[in-house]
Nucleic acid binder design. Structure first.
Lengths: 222, 222
DNA sequence: CCAGCGTATCTGTGATCACAGTTATGTAAT
DNA sequence: ATTACATAACTGTGATCACAGATACGCTGG
């Protein structure tokens, strides 16, 4: 526990990791659109650092498939095909479902409270048509449940998937899809958690992972 | 398809990626032991390149959790606790089981032939007590089945787990456990594949992911 | 007005240096 | 002989430069 905390502390002190976290949030939230280019020198100037830490951050994102990197060509946000996105959501449903099933036994009253607070937030941002805040709160909701599995390897992998599908979702939400058509009711998940009904939790979480796909499935079948 | 091929080709041309692949294989095969340190300058000298590509390779491995990185301290191979290893094998069983279930429908006669050839190889290396070759062949066997799922995201994640458990397994095999106590019969998997029995394939693959844990469970319960 | 081409500017990559913090070493004092 | 301490050798990190390949732009010719 303290070991992990130390590692995080150290990572926060590394310049490249700070840049990485900044860009990561932008990707999850949809502040960077599919196809958009990222240049080492430009980003370096933006954050007032040298090229070295930025170079490291972009490479890390490329390793995590959150950016595309071709030789001597600018890094850019991937433009996922519907098939690639479906693959990712499939993996997420498997992993997040398993994580949620384990989490059911570990959730405390404080967790229920926090999750319900996040649901309120999501509804608020939904009404306000604030896609960015909505997506981030949605991410926090799922991320918290996953963390209750206390399997850090599992959590990290799920996290990586949100990173990759973030721009894709944001693009769909802000440009292609009517928000009202989207069902994203998480209260059923919290209810099942309260009832300690692990199987139902797993099923609901698995199903929820598929609304991302449904955004495009009606529009794009490539 | 050609896009992916191009990317791979480019990656092969990048110096840092070559170093990465070299070290990756060493980790999977167990040529690098838990706790062992890796220095940028030492590795650079070993491969006759500058520090820059090595630095990139080590950082990538650290990102993939295949190496531990603390500030201003040497990179080193993680020494997993039994709990951490169990977490990884748990995730692997979920992912690899799902992948194998999908793969069942896609496997061709050529695949059966290749898999059986790999089994023969494993038995040979087993007899010869060649742990390194045995582990690599085992990896190839599982990796091939996973690839038949044609879900590259899924495959990459499973690959990452082998990378992280490799040194741990090798350490157990070469130093702690009697080889004869280890059951690792993969012929049942191939038979189920031939019978197109997806559920059985999934179950067998899931079960197989647990022999790694059993190596230590009898020895170390921390 | 448009196509073709050369050039100028952009891109990531590799190499090298400076620096600060860590680890190891060897010496001196008890 | 053992402990304490200074110092030397190591570590990763950040910055900067050189270079080659990719891209974009503008010019020149039709």
């Amino acid at each position: 526990m303290t070991q992990i905390a130390d590692i995080n502390k150290i990572q926060e002190e590394r310049l490249g990791h700070k840049i990485y976290l900044e860009l990561k949030k932008k990707l999850i939230v949809g502040e960077l659109m599919p196809g958009e280019g990222l240049s080492i020198r430009k980003v370096a100037e933006e954050y007032k650092v040298s090229a070295m830490p930025v170079r490291e951050a972009l490479r890390q994102l490329a390793i995590e498939q959150a950016l595309i990197s071709a030789a001597k060509k600018a890094y850019r946000v991937p433009d996922l095909t519907a098939g690639q996105a479906a693959d990712l959501f499939f993996v997420r449903s498997i992993l997040e479902g398993a994580a949620a099933e384990i989490a059911t036994a570990n959730a405390t009253k404080a967790d229920f409270k926090l999750l319900e607070k996040l649901i309120v937030g999501m509804n608020k941002y939904w009404q306000a048509k604030d896609a960015k805040s909505f997506l981030f709160t949605n991410y926090q909701f799922h991320s918290h449940i996953t963390s209750l599995s206390s399997n850090s390897a599992l959590q990290a992998m799920i996290d990586g998937i949100y990173l990759r599908t973030g721009p894709w979702l944001a693009h769909g939400i802000t440009e292609l899809v009517d928000l009202d058509a989207w069902k994203a009711d998480h209260s059923g998940i919290v209810n099942a958690l309260r009832a300690r009904d692990a199987k139902t939790v797993r099923r609901l979480v698995e199903e929820d992972a598929y609304w991302g796909v449904s955004i495009y499935s009606a529009i794009d079948n490539t």
